[in-house]
Design a protein around this nucleic acid. Structure first.
Lengths: 202, 202
DNA sequence: CCCGTTAGGATACAATTGTATCTATTCCGG
DNA sequence: CCGGAATAGATACAATTGTATCCTAACGGG
Protein backbone atom coordinates (compact mmCIF):
# COMPACT_ATOMS: atom_id res chain seq x y z
CA UNK A 1 0.00 0.00 0.00
CA UNK A 2 1.25 3.47 -0.87
CA UNK A 3 1.06 6.62 1.13
CA UNK A 4 -1.42 6.15 3.94
CA UNK A 5 -3.59 8.92 5.33
CA UNK A 6 -5.93 8.78 8.27
CA UNK A 7 -9.21 9.28 6.48
CA UNK A 8 -11.25 9.78 9.62
CA UNK A 9 -8.87 12.47 10.82
CA UNK A 10 -8.95 14.19 7.44
CA UNK A 11 -12.72 14.15 7.41
CA UNK A 12 -12.79 15.52 10.91
CA UNK A 13 -10.61 18.47 9.89
CA UNK A 14 -12.82 19.23 6.93
CA UNK A 15 -15.98 18.91 8.98
CA UNK A 16 -14.60 21.33 11.53
CA UNK A 17 -13.71 23.80 8.80
CA UNK A 18 -17.27 23.50 7.54
CA UNK A 19 -18.68 24.19 10.99
CA UNK A 20 -16.40 27.18 11.44
CA UNK A 21 -17.85 28.71 8.29
CA UNK A 22 -21.43 27.77 9.09
CA UNK A 23 -21.24 29.24 12.57
CA UNK A 24 -19.75 32.55 11.52
CA UNK A 25 -21.15 33.21 8.08
CA UNK A 26 -24.07 30.83 7.86
CA UNK A 27 -24.75 27.65 5.94
CA UNK A 28 -25.39 29.57 2.73
CA UNK A 29 -21.73 30.66 2.84
CA UNK A 30 -20.56 27.06 2.86
CA UNK A 31 -19.15 25.98 -0.47
CA UNK A 32 -16.67 23.28 -1.34
CA UNK A 33 -14.05 25.88 -2.16
CA UNK A 34 -14.65 27.84 1.04
CA UNK A 35 -14.22 24.70 3.07
CA UNK A 36 -11.01 23.90 1.25
CA UNK A 37 -9.66 27.39 1.91
CA UNK A 38 -10.71 27.30 5.58
CA UNK A 39 -9.05 23.92 6.06
CA UNK A 40 -5.97 25.00 4.11
CA UNK A 41 -6.24 22.29 1.50
CA UNK A 42 -7.12 22.17 -2.17
CA UNK A 43 -10.58 21.71 -3.56
CA UNK A 44 -9.63 18.27 -4.75
CA UNK A 45 -8.98 17.09 -1.22
CA UNK A 46 -12.45 18.06 -0.13
CA UNK A 47 -13.86 16.17 -3.07
CA UNK A 48 -11.61 13.24 -2.35
CA UNK A 49 -12.81 12.67 1.20
CA UNK A 50 -16.48 13.42 0.68
CA UNK A 51 -18.42 12.08 -2.25
CA UNK A 52 -20.48 15.26 -2.53
CA UNK A 53 -21.63 18.35 -0.70
CA UNK A 54 -24.64 16.64 0.83
CA UNK A 55 -22.44 14.09 2.56
CA UNK A 56 -20.31 16.91 3.91
CA UNK A 57 -23.34 18.73 5.26
CA UNK A 58 -24.63 15.62 6.97
CA UNK A 59 -21.24 15.03 8.51
CA UNK A 60 -21.36 18.56 9.91
CA UNK A 61 -24.70 17.99 11.53
CA UNK A 62 -23.60 14.68 13.01
CA UNK A 63 -20.52 16.34 14.50
CA UNK A 64 -22.65 19.13 15.95
CA UNK A 65 -24.91 16.63 17.65
CA UNK A 66 -21.88 14.86 19.06
CA UNK A 67 -20.55 18.14 20.42
CA UNK A 68 -23.81 18.95 22.17
CA UNK A 69 -23.84 15.51 23.69
CA UNK A 70 -20.23 15.86 24.81
CA UNK A 71 -20.94 19.27 26.31
CA UNK A 72 -23.78 17.97 28.43
CA UNK A 73 -21.80 14.99 29.68
CA UNK A 74 -18.75 17.11 30.35
CA UNK A 75 -20.69 19.57 32.45
CA UNK A 76 -22.43 16.84 34.32
CA UNK A 77 -19.04 15.37 35.14
CA UNK A 78 -17.62 18.75 36.16
CA UNK A 79 -20.47 19.17 38.64
CA UNK A 80 -19.15 16.06 40.29
CA UNK A 81 -20.58 14.29 43.28
CA UNK A 82 -24.23 13.67 43.95
CA UNK A 83 -26.48 15.62 41.62
CA UNK A 84 -29.96 16.52 42.75
CA UNK A 85 -32.64 16.14 40.08
CA UNK A 86 -32.76 19.89 39.86
CA UNK A 87 -29.01 20.00 39.22
CA UNK A 88 -29.41 17.58 36.35
CA UNK A 89 -31.97 19.85 34.74
CA UNK A 90 -29.93 22.97 35.36
CA UNK A 91 -26.86 21.39 33.77
CA UNK A 92 -28.62 19.96 30.75
CA UNK A 93 -30.69 23.03 29.99
CA UNK A 94 -27.78 25.39 30.53
CA UNK A 95 -25.62 23.27 28.25
CA UNK A 96 -28.12 23.92 25.49
CA UNK A 97 -27.68 27.68 25.89
CA UNK A 98 -24.86 29.64 24.27
CA UNK A 99 -22.52 30.48 27.16
CA UNK A 100 -18.90 30.73 26.08
CA UNK A 101 -17.74 31.61 22.60
CA UNK A 102 -17.50 28.01 21.45
CA UNK A 103 -21.01 27.07 22.49
CA UNK A 104 -22.28 30.27 20.90
CA UNK A 105 -20.70 29.26 17.62
CA UNK A 106 -22.12 25.77 17.91
CA UNK A 107 -25.56 27.15 18.63
CA UNK A 108 -25.30 29.34 15.56
CA UNK A 109 -24.46 26.37 13.41
CA UNK A 110 -27.19 24.33 15.05
CA UNK A 111 -29.77 26.99 14.28
CA UNK A 112 -28.60 27.17 10.68
CA UNK A 113 -28.89 23.42 10.36
CA UNK A 114 -32.26 23.35 12.01
CA UNK A 115 -33.63 25.76 9.45
CA UNK A 116 -32.03 23.90 6.59
CA UNK A 117 -33.53 20.67 7.86
CA UNK A 118 -37.01 22.14 7.46
CA UNK A 119 -36.61 21.91 3.70
CA UNK A 120 -34.14 19.02 3.52
CA UNK A 121 -35.46 15.64 4.72
CA UNK A 122 -32.00 14.07 4.76
CA UNK A 123 -30.81 16.63 7.32
CA UNK A 124 -34.04 16.35 9.29
CA UNK A 125 -33.43 12.65 9.83
CA UNK A 126 -29.98 13.30 11.25
CA UNK A 127 -30.95 16.34 13.30
CA UNK A 128 -34.07 15.16 15.11
CA UNK A 129 -32.51 12.33 17.07
CA UNK A 130 -30.69 14.43 19.67
CA UNK A 131 -33.73 16.47 20.79
CA UNK A 132 -35.77 13.30 21.19
CA UNK A 133 -33.04 11.57 23.14
CA UNK A 134 -32.77 14.57 25.45
CA UNK A 135 -36.52 14.74 25.94
CA UNK A 136 -36.78 11.08 26.86
CA UNK A 137 -33.77 11.22 29.15
CA UNK A 138 -35.13 14.16 31.10
CA UNK A 139 -38.64 12.75 31.26
CA UNK A 140 -37.36 9.59 32.88
CA UNK A 141 -35.44 11.65 35.41
CA UNK A 142 -38.35 13.90 36.22
CA UNK A 143 -40.77 11.01 36.60
CA UNK A 144 -38.37 9.42 39.07
CA UNK A 145 -38.00 12.73 40.88
CA UNK A 146 -41.75 12.93 41.20
CA UNK A 147 -41.99 9.46 42.66
CA UNK A 148 -39.28 10.44 45.13
CA UNK A 149 -41.38 13.45 46.12
CA UNK A 150 -39.01 16.06 44.71
CA UNK A 151 -41.74 17.73 42.70
CA UNK A 152 -45.45 18.11 43.31
CA UNK A 153 -47.65 15.15 42.32
CA UNK A 154 -49.99 17.29 40.20
CA UNK A 155 -47.18 18.05 37.71
CA UNK A 156 -47.03 16.20 34.43
CA UNK A 157 -43.39 15.23 33.85
CA UNK A 158 -43.69 14.78 30.09
CA UNK A 159 -45.31 18.19 29.62
CA UNK A 160 -42.89 19.88 31.97
CA UNK A 161 -39.88 18.47 30.15
CA UNK A 162 -41.22 19.33 26.72
CA UNK A 163 -41.88 22.86 27.96
CA UNK A 164 -38.44 23.28 29.49
CA UNK A 165 -36.65 22.07 26.37
CA UNK A 166 -38.74 24.29 24.13
CA UNK A 167 -38.02 27.14 26.51
CA UNK A 168 -34.29 26.49 26.27
CA UNK A 169 -34.57 26.44 22.48
CA UNK A 170 -36.46 29.70 22.36
CA UNK A 171 -34.01 31.30 24.78
CA UNK A 172 -31.11 30.16 22.64
CA UNK A 173 -32.62 31.95 19.69
CA UNK A 174 -33.07 35.14 21.63
CA UNK A 175 -29.51 35.01 22.96
CA UNK A 176 -28.08 34.45 19.50
CA UNK A 177 -30.01 37.36 18.09
CA UNK A 178 -28.67 39.58 20.84
CA UNK A 179 -32.13 40.18 22.27
CA UNK A 180 -31.02 38.78 25.59
CA UNK A 181 -27.76 37.97 27.38
CA UNK A 182 -26.77 34.49 28.41
CA UNK A 183 -27.17 35.51 32.03
CA UNK A 184 -30.71 36.72 31.43
CA UNK A 185 -31.55 33.42 29.77
CA UNK A 186 -30.06 31.43 32.64
CA UNK A 187 -32.11 33.46 35.06
CA UNK A 188 -35.29 32.59 33.23
CA UNK A 189 -34.39 28.91 33.25
CA UNK A 190 -33.63 29.02 36.96
CA UNK A 191 -36.83 30.92 37.64
CA UNK A 192 -38.79 28.11 36.01
CA UNK A 193 -36.79 25.45 37.83
CA UNK A 194 -37.58 27.20 41.10
CA UNK A 195 -41.25 26.96 40.24
CA UNK A 196 -40.91 23.29 39.44
CA UNK A 197 -38.60 22.08 42.20
CA UNK A 198 -39.13 24.82 44.73
CA UNK A 199 -36.49 27.48 45.54
CA UNK A 200 -32.90 26.29 45.87
CA UNK A 201 -32.83 27.22 49.55
CA UNK A 202 -34.99 24.20 50.31
CA UNK B 1 -47.87 60.33 -18.13
CA UNK B 2 -47.73 57.01 -19.98
CA UNK B 3 -48.97 53.66 -18.80
CA UNK B 4 -49.47 53.81 -15.07
CA UNK B 5 -48.95 50.84 -12.79
CA UNK B 6 -49.67 50.60 -9.09
CA UNK B 7 -46.14 50.19 -7.80
CA UNK B 8 -47.18 49.26 -4.28
CA UNK B 9 -49.48 46.57 -5.60
CA UNK B 10 -46.78 45.22 -7.90
CA UNK B 11 -44.30 45.10 -5.06
CA UNK B 12 -46.84 43.33 -2.89
CA UNK B 13 -47.35 40.63 -5.53
CA UNK B 14 -43.62 40.10 -5.85
CA UNK B 15 -43.13 40.03 -2.08
CA UNK B 16 -45.83 37.41 -1.75
CA UNK B 17 -44.24 35.32 -4.46
CA UNK B 18 -40.97 35.58 -2.54
CA UNK B 19 -42.62 34.43 0.69
CA UNK B 20 -44.30 31.53 -1.08
CA UNK B 21 -40.91 30.30 -2.19
CA UNK B 22 -39.20 30.96 1.13
CA UNK B 23 -41.90 29.12 3.08
CA UNK B 24 -41.91 26.02 0.92
CA UNK B 25 -38.36 25.68 -0.32
CA UNK B 26 -36.41 27.93 2.01
CA UNK B 27 -34.67 31.25 1.63
CA UNK B 28 -31.75 29.66 -0.18
CA UNK B 29 -34.15 28.77 -3.00
CA UNK B 30 -35.11 32.40 -3.47
CA UNK B 31 -33.57 33.92 -6.57
CA UNK B 32 -34.66 36.80 -8.72
CA UNK B 33 -35.64 34.43 -11.50
CA UNK B 34 -37.56 32.12 -9.21
CA UNK B 35 -39.55 35.03 -7.86
CA UNK B 36 -40.30 36.19 -11.40
CA UNK B 37 -41.51 32.73 -12.37
CA UNK B 38 -43.59 32.35 -9.20
CA UNK B 39 -45.21 35.74 -9.78
CA UNK B 40 -45.68 35.02 -13.46
CA UNK B 41 -43.66 37.99 -14.66
CA UNK B 42 -40.33 38.48 -16.34
CA UNK B 43 -37.03 38.90 -14.56
CA UNK B 44 -36.94 42.50 -15.69
CA UNK B 45 -40.10 43.32 -13.76
CA UNK B 46 -38.61 42.06 -10.54
CA UNK B 47 -35.56 44.19 -11.18
CA UNK B 48 -37.71 47.16 -12.07
CA UNK B 49 -39.65 47.25 -8.82
CA UNK B 50 -36.83 46.37 -6.46
CA UNK B 51 -33.42 47.94 -6.75
CA UNK B 52 -31.69 44.71 -5.73
CA UNK B 53 -32.16 41.39 -4.01
CA UNK B 54 -31.43 42.75 -0.57
CA UNK B 55 -34.33 45.20 -0.86
CA UNK B 56 -36.61 42.34 -1.85
CA UNK B 57 -35.52 40.26 1.11
CA UNK B 58 -36.13 43.10 3.51
CA UNK B 59 -39.55 43.68 2.01
CA UNK B 60 -40.35 40.02 2.61
CA UNK B 61 -39.41 40.25 6.26
CA UNK B 62 -41.41 43.42 6.74
CA UNK B 63 -44.46 41.76 5.19
CA UNK B 64 -44.01 38.73 7.43
CA UNK B 65 -43.94 40.92 10.51
CA UNK B 66 -47.10 42.68 9.33
CA UNK B 67 -48.83 39.32 8.87
CA UNK B 68 -47.97 38.17 12.37
CA UNK B 69 -49.25 41.44 13.73
CA UNK B 70 -52.45 41.11 11.71
CA UNK B 71 -52.96 37.55 12.86
CA UNK B 72 -52.76 38.46 16.51
CA UNK B 73 -55.14 41.39 16.16
CA UNK B 74 -57.55 39.36 14.06
CA UNK B 75 -57.73 36.59 16.64
CA UNK B 76 -58.09 39.03 19.44
CA UNK B 77 -61.01 40.58 17.58
CA UNK B 78 -62.56 37.18 16.83
CA UNK B 79 -62.52 36.36 20.53
CA UNK B 80 -64.74 39.38 20.95
CA UNK B 81 -66.14 40.72 24.18
CA UNK B 82 -64.23 41.10 27.39
CA UNK B 83 -60.96 39.23 27.38
CA UNK B 84 -59.51 38.03 30.63
CA UNK B 85 -55.74 38.57 30.95
CA UNK B 86 -55.34 34.84 30.50
CA UNK B 87 -57.30 35.01 27.24
CA UNK B 88 -55.00 37.70 25.95
CA UNK B 89 -52.00 35.48 26.59
CA UNK B 90 -53.67 32.43 25.10
CA UNK B 91 -54.56 34.34 21.94
CA UNK B 92 -51.20 35.99 21.46
CA UNK B 93 -49.13 32.90 22.18
CA UNK B 94 -51.31 30.66 20.09
CA UNK B 95 -51.12 33.12 17.22
CA UNK B 96 -47.38 32.64 17.24
CA UNK B 97 -47.76 28.90 16.75
CA UNK B 98 -48.32 27.28 13.36
CA UNK B 99 -51.98 26.23 13.38
CA UNK B 100 -53.54 26.29 9.93
CA UNK B 101 -51.62 25.84 6.70
CA UNK B 102 -51.09 29.55 6.16
CA UNK B 103 -49.63 30.21 9.60
CA UNK B 104 -47.45 27.14 9.15
CA UNK B 105 -46.05 28.58 5.96
CA UNK B 106 -45.51 31.94 7.60
CA UNK B 107 -43.73 30.32 10.52
CA UNK B 108 -41.48 28.50 8.09
CA UNK B 109 -40.55 31.73 6.38
CA UNK B 110 -40.12 33.44 9.72
CA UNK B 111 -37.71 30.77 10.89
CA UNK B 112 -35.75 31.02 7.67
CA UNK B 113 -35.50 34.78 8.08
CA UNK B 114 -34.55 34.50 11.71
CA UNK B 115 -31.61 32.32 10.83
CA UNK B 116 -30.59 34.56 7.95
CA UNK B 117 -30.72 37.56 10.28
CA UNK B 118 -28.08 35.95 12.48
CA UNK B 119 -25.51 36.62 9.77
CA UNK B 120 -27.13 39.63 8.10
CA UNK B 121 -27.33 42.79 10.23
CA UNK B 122 -29.71 44.51 7.80
CA UNK B 123 -32.28 41.77 8.30
CA UNK B 124 -31.69 41.67 12.03
CA UNK B 125 -32.69 45.31 12.31
CA UNK B 126 -35.99 44.68 10.56
CA UNK B 127 -36.74 41.39 12.29
CA UNK B 128 -36.11 42.20 15.93
CA UNK B 129 -38.75 44.87 16.35
CA UNK B 130 -41.80 42.59 16.45
CA UNK B 131 -40.54 40.29 19.24
CA UNK B 132 -39.67 43.28 21.37
CA UNK B 133 -43.03 44.93 20.77
CA UNK B 134 -44.77 41.71 21.76
CA UNK B 135 -42.66 41.30 24.87
CA UNK B 136 -43.38 44.82 26.05
CA UNK B 137 -47.06 44.58 25.28
CA UNK B 138 -47.50 41.37 27.24
CA UNK B 139 -45.37 42.59 30.14
CA UNK B 140 -47.59 45.62 30.55
CA UNK B 141 -50.65 43.37 30.54
CA UNK B 142 -49.25 40.92 33.03
CA UNK B 143 -48.10 43.63 35.40
CA UNK B 144 -51.61 45.05 35.36
CA UNK B 145 -53.06 41.59 35.91
CA UNK B 146 -50.81 41.17 38.91
CA UNK B 147 -51.93 44.46 40.42
CA UNK B 148 -55.51 43.32 39.86
CA UNK B 149 -54.73 40.14 41.77
CA UNK B 150 -55.09 37.81 38.78
CA UNK B 151 -51.70 36.25 39.35
CA UNK B 152 -49.72 35.61 42.49
CA UNK B 153 -47.70 38.56 43.85
CA UNK B 154 -44.47 36.55 43.99
CA UNK B 155 -44.37 36.19 40.20
CA UNK B 156 -42.10 38.38 38.15
CA UNK B 157 -44.10 39.60 35.14
CA UNK B 158 -41.10 40.44 32.97
CA UNK B 159 -39.50 37.04 33.50
CA UNK B 160 -42.77 35.22 33.03
CA UNK B 161 -43.45 36.97 29.73
CA UNK B 162 -39.95 36.41 28.42
CA UNK B 163 -40.28 32.76 29.35
CA UNK B 164 -43.65 32.34 27.68
CA UNK B 165 -42.54 33.97 24.45
CA UNK B 166 -39.37 31.91 24.35
CA UNK B 167 -41.50 28.85 25.03
CA UNK B 168 -43.78 29.70 22.13
CA UNK B 169 -40.75 30.16 19.90
CA UNK B 170 -39.28 26.85 20.89
CA UNK B 171 -42.61 25.11 20.42
CA UNK B 172 -42.96 26.63 16.98
CA UNK B 173 -39.64 25.10 16.01
CA UNK B 174 -40.67 21.69 17.25
CA UNK B 175 -44.02 21.85 15.45
CA UNK B 176 -42.37 22.87 12.19
CA UNK B 177 -39.89 20.04 12.41
CA UNK B 178 -42.75 17.60 12.94
CA UNK B 179 -41.51 16.67 16.39
CA UNK B 180 -44.83 17.75 17.88
CA UNK B 181 -48.34 18.53 16.66
CA UNK B 182 -49.94 21.92 16.96
CA UNK B 183 -52.36 20.50 19.52
CA UNK B 184 -49.53 19.17 21.65
CA UNK B 185 -47.89 22.59 21.58
CA UNK B 186 -51.11 24.33 22.53
CA UNK B 187 -51.51 21.93 25.43
CA UNK B 188 -48.07 22.84 26.72
CA UNK B 189 -48.87 26.53 26.47
CA UNK B 190 -52.16 26.06 28.31
CA UNK B 191 -50.45 23.94 30.94
CA UNK B 192 -48.09 26.81 31.67
CA UNK B 193 -50.89 29.36 31.63
CA UNK B 194 -52.76 27.23 34.15
CA UNK B 195 -49.72 27.38 36.39
CA UNK B 196 -49.52 31.13 36.01
CA UNK B 197 -53.16 32.16 36.20
CA UNK B 198 -54.60 29.14 37.93
CA UNK B 199 -56.81 26.54 36.17
CA UNK B 200 -59.45 27.87 33.78
CA UNK B 201 -62.23 26.62 36.03
CA UNK B 202 -61.52 29.49 38.39
C1' DC C 1 13.87 -1.84 -8.26
C1' DC C 2 9.60 -0.98 -10.05
C1' DC C 3 4.58 -1.48 -10.56
C1' DG C 4 0.19 -0.31 -8.92
C1' DT C 5 -2.49 1.89 -5.82
C1' DT C 6 -3.39 6.01 -3.01
C1' DA C 7 -3.32 10.90 -2.54
C1' DG C 8 -3.87 15.27 -4.38
C1' DG C 9 -2.76 19.26 -7.88
C1' DA C 10 -4.67 21.65 -11.96
C1' DT C 11 -8.16 22.57 -14.78
C1' DA C 12 -12.53 22.16 -17.13
C1' DC C 13 -17.52 22.40 -17.53
C1' DA C 14 -22.21 23.50 -17.45
C1' DA C 15 -25.56 25.66 -14.49
C1' DT C 16 -27.09 29.31 -11.79
C1' DT C 17 -26.55 33.61 -9.80
C1' DG C 18 -27.22 39.04 -9.34
C1' DT C 19 -26.96 42.82 -12.09
C1' DA C 20 -26.62 45.74 -16.26
C1' DT C 21 -27.88 47.21 -20.84
C1' DC C 22 -30.24 47.72 -25.09
C1' DT C 23 -34.44 47.96 -27.14
C1' DA C 24 -39.47 47.99 -27.95
C1' DT C 25 -44.03 49.06 -26.60
C1' DT C 26 -47.49 51.75 -24.41
C1' DC C 27 -50.14 55.94 -23.87
C1' DC C 28 -51.11 60.73 -21.79
C1' DG C 29 -50.38 65.68 -22.11
C1' DG C 30 -49.46 69.10 -25.18
C1' DC D 1 -51.52 63.27 -33.16
C1' DC D 2 -47.16 62.75 -31.55
C1' DG D 3 -43.03 63.03 -28.45
C1' DG D 4 -41.29 61.55 -24.36
C1' DA D 5 -41.63 59.15 -20.16
C1' DA D 6 -43.06 54.71 -17.96
C1' DT D 7 -42.95 49.87 -18.33
C1' DA D 8 -41.10 45.72 -19.67
C1' DG D 9 -38.95 42.12 -23.00
C1' DA D 10 -34.56 40.09 -24.44
C1' DT D 11 -30.08 39.37 -23.80
C1' DA D 12 -25.50 39.83 -21.93
C1' DC D 13 -21.95 39.42 -18.41
C1' DA D 14 -18.87 38.08 -14.93
C1' DA D 15 -18.81 35.45 -10.75
C1' DT D 16 -19.65 31.45 -8.23
C1' DT D 17 -21.32 27.03 -7.84
C1' DG D 18 -20.98 21.53 -7.62
C1' DT D 19 -18.89 18.08 -10.01
C1' DA D 20 -15.87 15.62 -13.30
C1' DT D 21 -11.54 14.65 -15.52
C1' DC D 22 -6.73 14.41 -16.40
C1' DC D 23 -2.40 13.94 -14.71
C1' DT D 24 1.49 13.76 -11.41
C1' DA D 25 3.75 12.38 -7.23
C1' DA D 26 4.44 9.33 -3.53
C1' DC D 27 5.69 4.83 -1.76
C1' DG D 28 5.19 -0.02 -0.02
C1' DG D 29 4.99 -4.94 -1.47
C1' DG D 30 6.60 -8.12 -4.88
Amino acid sequence: MPRQVDHDERRRQLTEALLRIASTRGLQAVSMREIAAEAGVSLRVVQYYFTNKQALLESGLTELGARMDRRVKQRAAAAAGELTPRDVFAVVLDAALPSDEQSRLDSMAWTAYYTAALTDPALAAVGLTLPNVLENFLTVRLTAAQQAGDIAPDRDPRTEVAGLLALANGLTSSVLSGQRSHEAATKIINYQLDRLFGPVAA
